Computed example of a mutant assay.
Amino acid sequence: MEADFVPVARALAARGLALRIASLAGERGALVKAGNAVILWQAVDDPGARVLAFERGIHDVVGPWMDPQEATARIMRLAMAPFEPARLQVGDLEFALIDRTVARAGRSIPLLAREYALLLYLARRPGEAVSRRSLLEAVWRIDFDPGTNSVEVHVSRLRAKLDRDFEWPMLRTLKGQGYLLQPRPAADDQF
């Protein structure tokens, strides 16, 4: 751990915050876990490494190039914030939210960006019917019906990728209600 982090660590300890610190192999810096947040202590101000850290899911980057009070305040703010877990599990469907990847029963499912957004929206509401209009607003970011079959086309493509070669379908259509992601087979499903 860099000696420059000691004043920040002391300030955080004085505020009752327990830290877990791991050094980074081959790099100058450390990962600091505070609450549910993961913060990179970057020994040298390196914007490129900072961007890469954010892309990998780091919540913030601080370092000696920053005022110690600011670094302390940033870490405290993040330590108190609730964070969504990095993974979401719905039945045998698993989302790696940082990498934006999906697997069903351990098998990777390659998805386009809109398909991923659509499936994630449904996965956050398992077993709940979501209307076409709600999907247009949440996934397409439009608050009117453009009169296209875009939702239906995307659901069809998603269904083909998600349910093909599996014993039972997860993505369901409820006539007149919308679409739902069903984590377990329904009792009345016939196989």
Rank of each mutant, 00 (worst) to 15 (best):
D145A: 11
A53Y: 08
Q182G: 02
G48A: 12
L19Y: 05
L19K: 06
A187M: 08
V90S: 06
A71T: 09
W41P: 09
I39M: 04
L112H: 12
R20V: 09
G106F: 07
A105R: 14
K175A: 13
Q42L: 15
A79Y: 06
Q182R: 12
A25Y: 09
A43N: 06
A186E: 15
T72W: 05
V44M: 10
A53M: 07
L122M: 11
I21A: 10
S150H: 07
G178D: 08
G91H: 06
I58L: 15
R104W: 03
E128G: 00
Q89A: 11
F191D: 09
L174G: 06
L88F: 08
R132K: 14
V61L: 06
D145S: 07
H154R: 07
A49F: 02
L40F: 13
M1A: 12
S108R: 13
P146E: 14
D99P: 00
K33W: 08
A129G: 03
A129C: 09
T101I: 03
R77N: 11
V32A: 06
P185W: 06
V62I: 15
N36V: 00
Q69K: 13
H59T: 09
A123N: 10
A73H: 10
R74G: 01
E167L: 12
G26P: 03
M1S: 13
M66Q: 15
A187F: 10
E128D: 08
G29Y: 05
N149K: 12
L24Y: 02
E94I: 09
A160H: 10
V61S: 04
Q182A: 13
L12N: 02
A11V: 00
V8W: 03
E167C: 00
L120G: 04
I142P: 02
T173P: 00
R100P: 03
R172E: 14
L120C: 07
V102H: 07
P185G: 08
R141A: 13
R100E: 14
L111K: 07
A3C: 00
A186Q: 13
I109R: 01
V32R: 04
A71L: 08
V155D: 01
D45I: 01
R20L: 06
D189N: 05
G127M: 10
P126M: 07
A187C: 04
A138S: 14
P126F: 08
E84L: 12
L112P: 00
L112D: 11
V61A: 11
Y179C: 05
K161L: 14
A187Y: 04
A86E: 14
Y116T: 00
A187D: 11
G57E: 11
Y179K: 05
A117C: 02
V130R: 07
R28M: 07
A186M: 10
G147F: 06
K33H: 10
R28T: 02
A129I: 01
L122Q: 09
D188W: 12
G106A: 07
Q182F: 01
Q89E: 14
E94C: 10
M66S: 03
R184D: 12
L181D: 06
K175T: 13
Q42P: 01
L24E: 08
A81W: 01
D60K: 01
W168L: 04
L112T: 08
G35Y: 07
A3K: 14
D92H: 04
D60A: 15
A160T: 10
R107V: 12
